[in-house]
């Protein structure tokens, strides 16, 4: 398989995953904010932190802030974090791979792109937002379904999977990082709203139901963080993503470098979590985790993509 093709499949996997996750996070956040009183210090800026970015807000009231941030996350064609941008990049990569990927996946990605061009040209109004985001999530899932259901388990599929796993682990770690701030909220608010906050965290990775079924019945901070970091069965948990990537390596040539890098990601995951877990501790761990994930990405690039010098 050509390195260029491997690189494109990998990025198609990453951008599709990023698009789906971004849509879900914004959707959940919009819901959450409706449930919280003003005195809880959770706002739109928390969302931007997830993406490790900053947004310039013109004007000072909350509406200006909401508009600027949603534009940054959804419609801005030039922001590398916006849903619009991710969908366009996914489509560009798939377009170049029409010989390798199933025909239906190209058609679906193209339809998603056309949809985004119509619906995300400007930031969708609050009343339409839920539906547009739900559509985007659904279409991403459909495309992943086509990949899973119709692609031979050969090199192109493995690179797609690597892209998805690394993106997923990265995104989940960022969500945990931001959520860790909730641990610092004053006790009265945490008692009153903690469950709402942590339910939201789980829902932003579609993890609420699985958490309830297979983990503790109570939705509580440390347990949620532990689940999202260490669970081996939930596909969006960091550990599960890394294990999946590691398993995929077995089918690719010269994968020692990446296996080693993935093991180093796993070593960062604290298990069991300490009893006195606090926000800054989590934050520090997530920073290290993200650095290790960037190393894993670099290992993929160095091993297989052979960039021209």
């Amino acid at each position: 398989m050509l390195s260029r093709a491997a690189e494109r499949v990998y990025w198609a996997g990453r951008y599709l995953e990023r698009a789906e996750n971004t849509a879900r996070i914004v959707q959940q956040y919009s819901q959450l904010l409706l449930d919280l009183p003003r005195e809880v210090d959770v706002g739109w800026f928390e969302l931007v932190k997830i993406f490790g970015a900053s947004v310039q807000v013109s004007g000072s009231n909350d509406d200006d802030e909401e508009r600027a941030i949603l534009e940054f996350l959804l419609s801005d064609p030039n922001s590398g974090n916006s849903l619009n941008f991710c969908i366009r990049m996914a489509r560009d990569n798939v377009r170049n791979l029409r010989d390798l990927l199933p025909q239906e996946s190209w058609e679906s990605v193209n339809e998603l792109h056309q949809y985004a061009r119509r619906k995300l040209e400007a930031t969708p109004a609050a009343e339409d937002r839920f539906e547009v985001l739900a559509d985007c999530i659904g279409r991403c899932q459909q495309i992943n379904g086509i990949f899973a259901g119709t692609m031979s388990h050969e090199s192109p599929y493995f690179f797609l999977t690597l892209g998805q796993c690394i993106e997923r682990a990265d995104m989940t770690s960022r969500i945990i990082d931001v959520a860790a701030a909730y641990l610092q909220q004053n006790e009265r608010l945490v008692l009153r709203y903690g469950s709402t906050l942590w339910t939201n965290v789980l829902k932003s990775v579609s993890g609420f139901q699985m958490y309830r079924q297979y983990s503790q019945p109570a939705v509580q901070g440390t347990a949620v963080i532990d689940y999202l970091l260490n669970d081996k069965a939930f596909p969006r948990a960091v550990r599960a993503s890394i294990l999946h990537a590691r398993k995929t390596c077995a089918s690719l040539p010269n994968s020692d470098h990446l296996v080693h890098a993935l093991d180093k990601v796993n070593h960062v995951l604290p298990s069991p979590l300490p009893d006195d877990l606090d926000g800054s501790m989590v934050s520090e761990t997530m920073d290290t985790l993200q650095i290790r994930l960037a190393d894993a990405h670099a290992a993929v690039v160095d091993t297989w993509f052979l960039p021209a010098d």
Partner: peptide
């Protein structure tokens, strides 16, 4: 040489 996932 062509760049492939198996090397050059």
């Amino acid at each position: 040489y062509m760049r492939t996932i198996d090397g050059l």
